[in-house]
């Protein structure tokens, strides 16, 4: 199988994640965009493992690691969003500007 298919799929997922991260202001949607970008990274890791054929399965193991980090990030991120919501009554990231200036 040609290697470009999964790689271009990953590039598409990553670009869509970048667009969502920059264009949406609902904080949970921003987290979802980050999830898309992490998924693109795992696709890349597995694809490059398939190209290189590593005996230690490094690409697959690191894909699992990225998944675990993503799960931890979602947990902490949602906790922060809920804290902002409790204090500001808003999940709009443009409203969370206390440390901006």
């Amino acid at each position: 199988m040609a290697a470009v298919y999964p790689l271009i799929f990953a590039a598409l997922l990553f670009s869509v994640g970048v667009y969502g991260l920059l264009s949406r202001r609902h904080a949970v949607l921003v987290l979802m965009s980050i999830e898309l970008m992490l998924a693109a990274v795992t696709v890349n890791l597995v694809t490059f493992w398939a190209i290189a054929g590593d005996a230690l399965l490094t690409g697959q193991v690191f894909a699992l690691f990225v998944m675990a980090i993503g799960a931890a990030e979602i947990g902490v991120g949602l906790a922060i969003i809920m804290l902002i919501y409790r204090n500001r009554a808003s999940v709009n990231i443009d409203d969370a500007d206390l440390m901006k200036y």
Binding site: E35, A39, L64, M67
Partner: peptide, 21 residues
Amino acid sequence: VAGVFLVLGAEFVAWAQVLVY
């Protein structure tokens, strides 16, 4: 994404993707 993992032969990663994500 899990389907792509299955095609590439990374079976456990695919099922972990389904379970975790």
